[in-house]
Design a protein around this nucleic acid. Sequence first.
DNA 1: CTGAAAGCGCTTACAG
DNA 2: CTGAAAGCGCTTACAG
Lengths: 350, 350
Amino acid sequence: MPAAKKTPKATVPVEMKRPATINDIARLAGVSKKTVSRIINHSPLVRQDTREKVETLMREVGYSPDPLARGLAFRRSFLIGMVYDNPTAQFIVNMQYGALDSLRGSGFELVVHPCDSRSPDYVDGVRRFVQQQKLHGVMLVPRVSEDPALAAMLDSIGMRYVRIAAVSMDRPERMVVTHDHDGAAEVADYLQSLGHRDIGLITGPRDYRSSIERTGGFLSALQKRGIELPKSRIVEAGYTFESGVAAAEKLLSGKKRPTAVFCGNDEMAAGVYRVAMREGISVPRELSVVGYDDSPLATRLWPPLTSVRRDTRDTGRIAAAMLIQPEDDLRPLASVRPHLILRDSCQPPG
Amino acid sequence: MPAAKKTPKATVPVEMKRPATINDIARLAGVSKKTVSRIINHSPLVRQDTREKVETLMREVGYSPDPLARGLAFRRSFLIGMVYDNPTAQFIVNMQYGALDSLRGSGFELVVHPCDSRSPDYVDGVRRFVQQQKLHGVMLVPRVSEDPALAAMLDSIGMRYVRIAAVSMDRPERMVVTHDHDGAAEVADYLQSLGHRDIGLITGPRDYRSSIERTGGFLSALQKRGIELPKSRIVEAGYTFESGVAAAEKLLSGKKRPTAVFCGNDEMAAGVYRVAMREGISVPRELSVVGYDDSPLATRLWPPLTSVRRDTRDTGRIAAAMLIQPEDDLRPLASVRPHLILRDSCQPPG
DNA sequence: CTGAAAGCGCTTACAG
DNA sequence: CTGAAAGCGCTTACAG
């Protein structure tokens, strides 16, 4: 005999071909769909026993509201965007894992959106993305997080966002600060305490906020301990391995070499290792090296690289959590602290 | 004076506060919304001049259809899911970039979903994810792509998917094959041609398809060239750096060492480097080493590591493209070929 | 080739 | 605390 076309009124069909809708729940529970809606949205305006009855029913039936329908009615999706330019793979992935830690079970999902911030119309590309998808909010990862034009655009269209950056540069509830200044200062203190006085510095690009902060933090901490680096000991590079190689060649070619080098990230530190290897300079006996990121690379290299750890997964977790909080609940500025991981790439100068 | 509440009939408002809807376009163009809908969905049942008129208007107004509304009506979202377990960061990121290459401009977006395939209810977690989000399709990345239970579940709920794996294990239109067998065979041929006869092999876990294929491809190619590896020359490891270190310690501790080692991936090859460094074994003079993946690590290590390149970005591109193709257009099985990148980690045995 | 009606599964005012 | 009506912006039958 033909199967029932309408769900029978009297029974609770735990297994249904067609997924349950708010109407099914309302009918089965004997309440209006508006009441079910209130429960879905955690409105306090529902009697406790009604709430419990309906919630039990939803669990039994395996009901979960359709994000498409809710999104249409709310005029806003349940998607969080992650916008980034070109950080290292490990950084991106850790940030994603962190964000997903916070999103799991919340009904929100993560949509990734890499872009090219050197392209003239990238801000417009991001605008189309967030506007068309009606995102609930966006995470801005360095270096796009540092772009005032991007933040201004998002603000102008009323799009919620959180910026992850080395220093605060927006309203507190829109910032996760990574304090790169302090991380670099810790390196300076460490190298000075080992006895190093002639120190080299390989920086990232001068227009990256992270690079500015790491450079500033390092130099000012050295200064506080009475060490002033001459210009010739500071070389700007591009955060890449290849640029690190080129910078190291410059820094290590003179007849008097520095006894230690701090690199703005691990990739460039790997470049220093490469040049040291080629030139027969022993790390750490003749040259101490410190990186920044504490990437997997740090432990793959020989000798294992002393580096500043940034808890990127934590950062992502915090940023996503801020985005899905109720808007009226203004949270204080969130931050995450870097700290130096000691390995075998440093020792007192010979 | 108060701004118009209704859009004036006579003019085309290029800039509107409220984004244009299908109704605005229909009214402005003097056609029904159904006709506009037909144009959005590329239906052939529209007169050419009507189509052009409406398309021009849509461009002028900056109209783009709301994916939430379309999704609700279609009962299917415009989201592609990417499900993966725990590959390396570079692999994940490249796969994402590739997928996004294909999705860009298509109206589809990429939602990432890492999971833990060792967890007993992970298949159920994926089911909830794809079902709740009403995904358009999912990309299954190794190693979850190899799980028959996951594929069966997706099939049972009618969810479209593409599996990326070392060999074909599903209907052709659901596979992107990476031919790891061939990549490993190329390594075997190369090492043999250099003159190596006593060769070590560090494999990934025996229950990974990629590992099975790489091991099989390597051994059978050696066999074809008359080389049979004794059991003692084959060590199973876990695709991680640490497991590579442990495997290398076993392989290199005996009094007669192999003259070359092939590792199932670069991470484990880095482990071999580590042990060789510690034991004072010179690579490549005393030991040739080959990896698989051609990850960034391969060029950071010293000496630069010879490794098999897999075009992961291409793989992601193909998989995503397959998912957003019209369903009636059955494409042949897609595949991507690995090839060996020669660097400085190999030479004829001393 | 084109259109009017009904519906997708929710929420927002507005009442009570 | 609860509900009936209207609407979010699209598409699917069903007609013509």
